[in-house]
């Protein structure tokens, strides 16, 4: 079999005007000035989203901040089974279980903290939960805070969302 020779495309020869550079530079200046003028006069066309004031609309299946679900009577749906904490690869869920006053329910979470600084948003906790008590469908990511403590979300914050 003959060795195939592949022809590599070479850049085409530049025309005289192009080798002079100057005309092309002037055309380039025209392009950039066009963008500048367009953007100054039609600011609404700039794609930038002014973040804290304007929020981007996330796609419906975006895996965002967690929330804990409630039963119809308002108590947390979570039964403190530790499945999510066990599944979590980042070890960022801290649960303290307590005995539930409701005889039909065995346990309930006294504490349920998620350390948002450690969470990697993998969604394993949602997968692991046997009673669909934790979801990641808030459609938003962790907002910035000034201290680390504020990024450890407690059960009250998670139930609020």
């Amino acid at each position: 079999m003959a060795i195939g020779v592949k022809k590599v495309a070479r850049p085409r020869q530049m025309s005289g005007g192009e080798t002079l550079y100057l005309l092309e530079i002037l055309r380039g200046l025209g392009v950039t000035m066009g963008h500048l003028v367009r953007n100054v006069f039609r600011q609404e066309n700039i794609a930038t989203i002014e973040y804290p004031e304007v929020r981007r609309v996330m796609p419906p299946r975006f895996r965002g901040l967690h929330r804990l679900m409630r039963r119809p009577d308002g108590t947390p749906r979570c039964v403190a089974c530790y499945c999510c904490a066990t599944a979590c690869p980042a070890v960022c869920i801290t649960i303290v279980a307590g005995e539930s006053p409701d005889p039909a329910v065995e346990k309930y979470p006294v504490r349920f903290d998620i350390d948002m600084l450690r969470c990697v948003f993998c969604g394993h906790c949602v997968e692991a939960c046997p009673c669909d008590a934790i979801r990641m469908d808030t459609g938003w990511f962790t907002p910035p805070e000034h201290t680390r403590e504020k990024l450890i979300y407690t059960i009250d914050m998670l139930l609020e969302k």
């Binding site: 950039t32 000035m33 963008h35 500048l36 953007n39 100054v40 600011q43 700039i46 794609a47 930038t48 002014e50």
Partner: peptide, 10 residues
């Protein structure tokens, strides 16, 4: 500011 507007930023 000029760079931003030239590059379609704010």
């Amino acid at each position: 500011k000029g760079a931003a507007y030239i590059q379609d930023r704010r």
